[in-house]
Design a binder for these strands. Structure first.
Length: 844
RNA sequence: GGGCGAUUAGCUCAGUUGGUUAGAGCACUUGCCUUACAAGCAAGGGGUCGGGAGUUCGAGUCUCUCAUCGCCCACCA
């Protein structure tokens, strides 16, 4: 027997171990159709946050649902080495211990990274287990295991040979803290206080100067031209003349270039080809020299003379002082402008000229667009709007910088000897040296849906069976980092998309709507919530309280509500189990009205839930289940069943409905449904995990009965309302007219005892009557007065509704154009309202 | 500058291909320990669905427009 109260700790205790032991999570039944989900690998940088919990709950729901529907489900787990993110954390940890990364050396440093990975990877595994995830842990992968490394090498070499990967000297986003290049995606922009420094650039041989405004004055050491717009009447005549870069006194040309915007600033712009991507382009157009003025730590180099060795910001400060002293500073305007920062180290990104590896995006993007426009080959996004967003991204695509000056990652399979370059995993021979850099962590992530399945391994049987995958779920914040890249890489190497459906969920926000973050200290630990309310409650809450693609404002009160819902399920189950212990065999031969009603409701719910589940509308599936369980099953059917608990048919219906409920809830709340399922006197399997998902059965639809009982229950509410409004007590005498089988239902639901039923109206007592198609009931009571006010209010409401409906039905357009069933419904409704009005008016 | 989303009850949010009187949770009012559940039961109150216009027999839902908030991308001398 179940305890009186739901105890999530007790319920969730050992089930996961049992499931594991029984190998329910393992894929491989080839008699079934495969269904594949690849887990987005969390970074081994720390704990899982609520966003992860949300993401994995969605996937587990789909995995369990599909498994119960008879698919051979592979849900493959894994973790990501997260190159720069992890390296930054390890570097920071070592720094605390007083150890310098470079002094430690590459090999020893990597050992530290592996130690870190073991520790945090282990934590992550525990948290997955806590959430009850049905991951096939015999196939766990890591982005630095041989599955991934082989795939990355194979992919890189292939792309290099095809010219899809090239090496180039370009201005890239440089992180001076981590001393590495970044892709555009790894830079985030933040409004930052800064200034426009208006510096005087004297024209050669003249006493005139041009006012050149810049936010980064220190870059003047690299200036190799000053540009004006060729159409700009103010400066047109100066094109071709020379100008003197202050402090360095370098003579550079004044050039005409479209890049100079007449509307902006003074219309004059200094050109620093080695330190600004736009200037780099200008430099290419005008054959300008590129002068690098900083090193990889953003410290000024020898080019800057006495500023050599100063940090970029220090240099800026000192330089401004010097400019002031020499009267070369026209003015300083304070501004707030947006400045790029490194996503991981949080330092200001420096546009930096360096030699890096790039993926050429044009053809890959074009192919993606083509594929996405093909109805049969495209990825279906949920919600649909992301299909447009991914195409937009493809259309504006720039080349992807993939080399990183880091150690933690997959080393670029490129070898150099003198002027020769070779792409190869192993050394091509004596004297060859491998590229020092590693690849962007997202390069390996992009291959994840097929690398994990053994695409580059000798044994690629998993790949053959389980690729392409069926379902991908992730937050919209990594659509460009990851989803986009998985798509084009998969298209490139497998000629297919990596997944059929892609579900995008939102971000978890704090209760006040702000982002959850460590720095704000408003983060919530999933483990803490599991501890307080159980994984089941957390999972159901996360997956059913918002619509697809929407952000979720975390609200602990709502988890409490979910806990209450589970407690309700628990107690309903308790009631059922208490009363069906002695059930002999299932028997549905003598279905009563209420049995037919609940079976109809159940089947409609099954149909609805399946529809929503197939579209990943978990909130709608959850809402259907919630109202069916709480309102139809608990509030109505269980109450009705109380009068026939000895009937084997009633017992059977209670069991059947409860079983179906448990099964439909199981993907959402695996633990509690398993707990209750285990206690059922008759069940189809040893675990609910391997039971079959309920199927809609039209033989169990009883439309007429459903309609009758729905009306009857409506009557019950109205009669209760009548009693409350008129303070009718339990002791009031009653006359009741109804059909025999319905009468027992009314009496049951209204808790009418035979003692108070009278044959005739007692004298000198007030009458309170309710009449409908199925019942005519009157309460008699002394002393109490008819609540005239309420009655009038009701009449007024009804009259308004009748007028509205009469007008509608008088509208010929409506009659002829609206569907017949809608019109019929209105006519019927009108009739009912008119009858009701008549009754109410009689009372007055 | 380009794009996307949001705006519905006091709060947090649902609302499917346009169709009965727009829903839920929490909060609120009233009455109940009715032996599955007081973390519950019963009955209620509360919304001109951001403003305006249009299409339609019919608009929270479709179109246009304006406003406010948020996000993404690009630019940022």
């Amino acid at each position: 027997m179940l305890d009186k109260k739901y105890n999530h700790k007790e319920v969730e205790k050992d089930k996961f171990k049992t499931w594991l032991k029984k190998e329910y999570f393992k894929c491989g039944d080839t008699s079934k159709e495969p269904f594949t989900i690849i887990l987005p690998p969390p970074n081994v940088t720390g704990r899982l946050h609520l966003g992860h919990a949300w993401d994995v709950s969605i996937q587990d729901i789909v995995a369990r649902y599909k498994r119960m529907q008879g698919y051979d489900v592979l849900w493959l787990p894994g973790t990501d080495h997260a190159a720069i993110a992890t390296e930054a954390k390890v570097v920071a940890k070592l720094k605390k211990e007083g150890i310098d990364k470079y002094k430690l050396g590459r090999e020893k440093f990597l050992e530290k990274c592996w130690e870190w990975t073991e520790e945090y990877g282990g934590n992550i595994r525990k948290e997955w287990a806590n959430m009850g995830l049905s991951l096939d842990n015999t196939k766990e992968r890591f982005t630095l295991d041989e599955y991934s490394v082989n795939a990355v090498n194979k992919a890189f070499i292939d792309m290099y040979n095809k010219g899809l990967i090239y090496r180039g000297k370009r201005i890239i986003n440089w992180d001076p803290e981590a001393k590495t290049a970044l892709s555009n995606e790894e830079v985030f922009y933040k409004d930052t206080k800064g200034a426009f420094y208006h510096i005087k650039y004297y024209i050669e041989g003249e006493d005139n100067y041009l006012d050149v405004a810049t936010t980064r004055p220190e870059t003047l050491f690299g200036d190799t031209a000053v540009a004006v717009n060729p159409k700009d009447k103010r400066y047109k005549h100066l094109i071709g003349k020379n100008i003197i870069v202050p402090i360095v006194n370098r003579v550079v040309p004044i050039i005409g270039d479209e890049h100079a915007d007449m509307e902006k600033g003074t219309g004059v712009v200094k050109i620093t080809p080695a330190h600004d991507p736009n200037d780099f382009e200008v430099g290419n157009r005008h054959n300008l020299e590129r002068i690098v003025i900083m090193d990889e730590k953003a410290v000024m180099n020898e080019v800057t003379g006495k500023y050599n060795g100063l940090d970029r910001f220090e240099c800026r400060e000192k330089l401004i002082e010097e400019l002031k002293e020499k009267d070369l500073l026209e003015k300083t305007e304070e501004i707030i402008h947006s400045v790029g920062y490194s996503e991981r180290t949080n330092v200001m990104v420096e546009p930096y000229l360096s030699e890096q590896w790039f993926v050429k995006m044009k053809d890959l993007s074009q192919n993606l667009i083509k594929m996405q426009k093909d109805r049969d080959k495209k990825v279906n996004f949920f919600p649909k709007r992301y299909e447009k967003i991914i195409i937009q991204k493809a259309e504006e695509c720039y080349d992807w910088c993939i080399s990183r000056q880091l150690w933690w990652g997959i080393r670029i399979p490129i070898w150099y000897k003198d002027n020769e370059i070779k792409a190869s995993v192993d050394s091509p021979g004596e004297g060859w040296v491998q590229d020092e850099d590693v690849l962007d962590t997202w390069f390996s992530s992009a291959l994840w849906p097929f690398s994990t399945l053994g695409w580059a391994m000798e044994d690629d049987s998993l790949y053959k069976r389980y690729f392409p995958t069926n379902f991908m779920s992730t937050g919209y914040d990594i659509i460009f980092f990851w989803v986009f890249r998985m798509m084009f890489q998969s298209q490139n190497f497998t000629k297919q998309n990596p997944f059929k459906d892609c579900y995008m969920h939102g971000l978890i926000r704090a209760k006040d709507g702000r982002k959850m973050s460590k720095s704000l200290g408003n983060g919530v630990e999933p483990l803490e919530m599991v501890e307080k309310y159980g994984a089941d409650a957390l999972r159901y809450y996360l997956t059913t309280t918002s619509a697809a693609g929407m952000d979720l404002r975390f609200d602990e009160e709502k988890i409490t509500s979910t806990w209450n819902f589970i407690n309700k399920l628990w107690n309903a189950s308790r009631f059922v189990l208490m009363n069906i212990e002695d059930i002999k065999e299932e028997n549905l031969d003598n279905l009563k009205l209420e049995d037919k009603w609940i079976l109809t409701k159940l089947n409609n719910t099954i149909k609805e839930v399946e529809k929503h589940m197939n579209k990943y509308d978990f909130n709608l599936a959850g809402a259907s289940l919630y109202s069916f369980i709480w309102e139809d099953f608990c509030d109505s059917y269980i109450e009705l069943s109380k009068s026939s608990l000895n009937d084997n048919t009633t017992k059977t219906v209670l069991l059947k409905v409860l079983t179906a409920i448990l099964k439909m809830l199981h993907p959402f709340m695996p633990y509690v449904t398993e707990e209750i399922y285990q206690k059922l006197p008759i069940k189809e399997s040893e675990s609910i995990m391997i039971s079959t998902y309920p199927k809609y059965n039209k033989n169990n639809i009883y439309l007429d009965e459903e309609q009758v009982l729905t009306k009857v229950l409506g009557d019950v509410t109205n009669i209760r309302n009548l009693k409350v409004n008129n303070n009718i007590t339990k002791e009031a005498s009653i006359t009741i007219k109804s059909s025999k089988d319905l009468e027992s239902i009314y009496k049951n639901m209204l808790k009418i005892k035979d003692d108070y039923i009278v044959e005739k109206a007692p004298k000198d007592k007030k009458e309170y009557n309710y009449k409908s198609n199925y019942i005519d009931i009157t309460y008699y009571q002394e002393g109490s007065v008819l609540n005239k006010e309420l009655l009038l209010k009701e009449i007024e409401k009804l009259e308004q509704s009748i007028i509205k409906r009469e007008n509608l039905l008088a509208n010929e357009n409506y009659i002829t154009k609206a569907p017949q069933n809608i019109v019929e419904l209105d006519k019927q409704k009108l009739k009912e309202e008119q009858e009701k009005l008549k009754i109410l008016k009689e009372k007055l």
